[in-house]
Design a protein around this nucleic acid. Structure first.
Length: 501
RNA sequence: GCCCCCAUCGUCUAGUGGCCUAGGAUACCGGCUUUUCAUGCCGGCGACAGGGGUUCGAGUCCCCUUGGGGGUGCCA
């Protein structure tokens, strides 16, 4: 069976280009992608750019980049094309108009002339009247001719879909049957005053025309579905399988919104990661992000929870997607990342680390692969990539660029009448005299020093650490010194001593 | 207001009438390992929202209440 068989599964992810890919959107893509790959079906990427006021430049590029970073590819869509394109809704206006005409001719849609202000007033009135429906269908309905004439005269007109007046039941693969009463369903706009279709209409037309068989989307779309089903019936389209997934929230129960970042900055806090790109910048592994978000609303059972994309693909099924909204627990994500980083091959880790440095325009970008790989190795057990930089960054700096952390200096060097400084003074000539500046030789020297001074290793190692890194964090002291080299080690200790007082 | 969806440890979840004195993960607490920061290992704390039914038996089925979420746009 090939992906083009008439009965094969086709799914889609249809973002609107309003910025980076949101982490919740990533979960939606993932589940769709999993359904497609599991069934050897087709995954379509479609851009819903029908709202010109919200369009943000470069969004499509960014979304594509984020998907690539996650390792989720698409079979049809931007950059790759396909047989049922175009895949940008803004390029499909002629197609929408054709189907809109059918609706107009069959009487399932009609022109409407209310202005936005008038509609606002109607909504207000409905509110005070405690009515379910705010839009009163005109009686008699405007004729097509009246609509065309009004348009020709330059009046902004919209087209509304005429709901059938019956209850509508949606069959959802996650939620089961959901019925909405006729008196809850009012006529809605399918073509805006600017001639663009609304989401409802474009989505229904495209899903049908692109032969989408399964629609997996967020639960916020559940109430839209009866409208979509009604249009499908009027248009003679098949209704695809629907599956509405639970929503992802912040730990405090609020929505995960891009605005959270600005709010946090205003409060002087670090901005939280919200978009996929944020997690990339923050030094997470896409494997960990994917693994973590897969578990938000889905579980394969049997207490299994660590798996890569290929394992997820064979484990996934819509039947096992839950109904309960989830909260995004960053602590657990960090734990997953730590685990994935520990288990990743050195090649994989190096590639991911270089990507991290690159997107952050880090000064370590210029370092060679061997040095970076060594930094990774020396940082084993790190949680996210910033930890690696924090731990090994001193190796990539000039000797005189080391800044001393005041707390570290006080605690390790200045305390006890400058015991740390004294230790450095004691150590400096010994290190200088060391013919072989290897980790083993350094270890032997430090061990001997401990014995002769009746000191613990920490009392010897910590002053050195602060002298060469400016902080109390580095890889093992032996490894650090060997790597730094004799010249830089002596220079830094000398400089540290000179800074005293 | 009206409509719809949901409800197991702080969090993510397993559980599809007896295997549940409710399992795992993460967080938290304690201990061990350790030259720093991490990691790792061991142990502990910790939940079926409440109330009615149904049944020999309910976390699992039904109803009500409460709580959370969503919809009610010329946004998607």
């Amino acid at each position: 069976m090939t992906a083009n068989d008439a009965n094969s599964i086709r799914v889609r992810f249809a973002p609107s280009p309003t910025g980076y890919l949101h982490i919740g959107g990533a979960r939606t893509v993932l589940f769709n992608w999993l359904v497609a790959r599991r069934a050897s079906g087709t995954f379509v990427l479609r851009i819903e750019d029908t709202d010109r006021t919200r369009h943000i430049e470069d969004s499509v590029q960014k979304i594509c980049d984020d998907l690539r970073w996650l390792g989720l590819d698409w079979d049809e869509g931007p950059e790759v094309g396909g047989d049922v394109g175009p895949y940008f809704q803004s390029e499909r206006l002629a197609i929408y108009n054709e189907h809109l005409q059918r609706l107009l001719e069959s009487g399932d849609a009609y022109y409407a002339f209310e202005t936005p202000a008038e509609l606002d007033a109607m909504r207000e009135a409905a509110k005070t009247a405690k009515s379910n429906i705010s839009y009163a269908r005109p009686d008699p309905l405007p004729t097509v001719e009246e609509g065309v004439a009004a348009k020709a005269a330059g009046t902004k007109v919209v087209v509304r879909f005429k709901m059938p007046g019956t209850d509508i039941t949606v069959v959802d693969d996650i939620l089961g049957e959901v019925t909405l009463a006729a008196d809850q369903l009012e006529d809605f706009i399918i073509q805006k005053g600017d001639g663009f279709p609304t989401y409802h209409f474009a989505c229904v037309a495209d899903d049908a025309l692109m032969k989408i068989t399964h629609v997996l989307r967020g639960q916020e779309h559940l109430m839209n579905t009866p409208k979509h089903v009604a249009m499908q019936r009027a248009l003679g389209f098949d209704t695809p399988h629907y599956a509405h997934m639970p929503v992802i929230f912040n730990m405090d129960g609020s929505k995960m919104s891009k605005r959270d970042k600005e709010k946090a900055i205003k409060r002087g806090e670090a901005p939280p990661e919200i978009d996929v790109h944020d997690f990339r910048l923050a030094g997470y592994l896409p494997e960990a992000v994917l693994n973590f978000i897969a578990l938000l609303g889905w579980s394969p059972g049997e207490d299994r929870e660590r798996f890569a994309l290929d394992e997820m693909t064979s484990l996934f099924s819509i039947e096992r997607v839950g109904k309960t909204n989830a909260k995004f627990d960053r602590d657990k994500l960090v734990a997953f990342n730590t685990d994935w980083a520990t288990r990743a091959s050195s090649e994989r880790l190096l590639a991911a680390f270089k990507d991290y440095l690159s997107v952050n325009e880090s000064s370590l970008c210029g370092a060679d692969d061997a040095a970076l790989a060594r930094a990774l190795k020396a940082s084993e057990g790190f949680r996210t990539f910033p930890d690696v930089v924090k731990k090994t960054g001193f190796l990539f700096k000039a000797d005189d660029a080391i800044a001393y952390d005041a707390k570290a200096v006080k605690k390790v060097l200045a305390k006890n009448d400058g015991a740390g400084y004294a230790m450095l003074e004691h150590l400096l000539p010994k290190l200088e005299a060391l013919p072989d500046f290897s980790a083993d030789a350094i270890e032997a020297l430090l061990a001997a020093t401990c014995e002769e001074r009746e000191a613990k290793l920490g009392q010897v190692a910590q002053p050195i650490r602060v002298a060469i890194t400016g902080s109390t964090v580095s890889p093992s002291i032996h490894e650090s010194l060997e790597w730094l080299g004799k010249g830089a080690t002596l220079a830094r200790i000398g400089r540290c001593l000179a800074h005293r007082g």
